[in-house]
Amino acid sequence: MHRLPIMEFFPKAMDKKPKVTLFIQCLVDAVWPQVAEAMVRVLQKLGLSLECPTDQTCCGQPAYNSGYRREACIAAKRFIEIFEGSEIIVSPSGSCVHMVRHHYPELFCDNPAWRQRAQRIAARIYEFTEFLVDVLGVEDVGAHFNGRITYHDSCQLLRGIGVKDQPRRLLRHVAGAEFVEMKNSDYCCGFGGSFAVKYPDISAAMVNDKVDHIIHSGARAVIGCDTGCLLNIAGAVSRRSLSIQTLHIAQLLAKDYL
């Protein structure tokens, strides 16, 4: 794994804990705030001080993924202005981190001044599990869960920012939980933002495969790190009247899912 620049400043055994600025994915903010609340509890338990800019909205990913670069640029500039002063930014969403870390600098490829600002932010933003494991060096947050759990790799998290092991390490340390891999855990669940709405047949076929694999794993709960995917999976689980829980990893780690 490549080392991120921030780790030079914050080696695993940190003396001084950084001030963490929360970047809350818009889906979490509006639909599933429990995820952010859970993340806050986990981070506070680790003794971190948190701040959360209350004028934040969306990183621009929906526009970017649909080809609306200009609108995505508007969102990106605003994001940069809001978060520029932050020491370290943590988000409960791999796809948003991928957007900021990799697509922001690319969005401003023709604009050196903004590109530089984008790159500075890109070097300071972390996905939640990446932050816990790679930056803080924490794998056991003292969580417990009774029963079998499995994990879904979200696409941008896995292939965009290369987070594969970190959530698994955290899950293996959950007391009482038996972690199993499902088949094709790295296959897309069929969310894809507006794809799920525009191509409902294809999306449904994909998410139903995902749910089948979850069922076959025998898990009581499926865990993920990206709320888009989780809403998709939870929606299909609910439509099929299954008793499987769909949880964001922060909820499991904070035991906030009941």
């Binding site: 409902p200 047949d201 299909a236």
Partner: peptide, 19 residues
Amino acid sequence: LAGWTQSRNFQPLAKETFI
């Protein structure tokens, strides 16, 4: 948004945003 609910349920917006 009908495409979404063609084969999935939809998690409604929360009463209050996190922010």
